[in-house]
Amino acid sequence: MSITAAPVSAHGFDAYLAHKRRRRINNWLLVACSVALLAWCFWDTIMFDTDWQRMGGALGIGGTLERFLLIDWSLLPKLLVPALETLMMATLGTILGCVFSLPVAWFGAANVTPSKYFFYPLGRFLMVLSRSIHEIIWALLFVGAVGLGALPGILAVAMRSVGFISKITAEAIENIDPKPVEAIRAVGGNQFQVMYYGIVPQILPVIIGTIIFEWDINIRRSAIMGLVGAGGLGLVFFRQMAMFNYGGVTLVVLAVLVLIAIGEVISHYARKAVI
């Protein structure tokens, strides 16, 4: 930032110095305002809102922490099946998310959209909507629609992934090389053939990479879907929490970590195989 476009004027160097001074003052003002804002936030949220009495000082916190650190290893064998369930929910949610994002990506890609004035803004809006609603809110909405169980969790995970997958896919479709598409059109290919032989092969590597990435994220999302009765590690977590068995809670958190580490290893090799 030190080299800026200095205003070339009759005053020359003086004008340059004045410009620099103004910039410095502006920067200082920005920093001062940010510091004041943060200090006020700190005061209002942390100092004012926290119930310091209830926390019971360092000793009270230490006591609670100690209960968390005494890990309840006896729970370990009971975690294998829930971990697998979480993995299944993440996978199903990702696949369902891909299915949902097909039309959204088709609508939201400027060069293949069926109608620029209706479907294109609709596709873009669906992408933003999917990303802006938190998965917990999606889950609550779907519990109302389909009842408790694994399905609302999977649907919530799927809806949350639609935004990212379809956005990347739409961008990939917009950046394709138009020549194969024209070639297939020129030899008389219909709309479906144009899509299948002209567009899909060009965007497939990007999409598969994105799906693997999203699957990785979805593991951690489905680990909390126990909130809506969707089973998996989330349900064990909430149960242990309700029983105040904090050692078990720590073990579940560790299990989530291990599961995600495994997921990361799998996605690393999968991405290597695809690209």
């Binding site: 949220t45 809102d49 926290t50 119930d51 926390m55 609670t64 958190v253």
Partner: peptide
């Protein structure tokens, strides 16, 4: 959030 609430109590901290 749940872990911090358990240790530090409800609130914005």
């Amino acid at each position: 959030t749940i872990l911090f609430v358990t240790v530090l109590g409800f609130g914005m901290l």
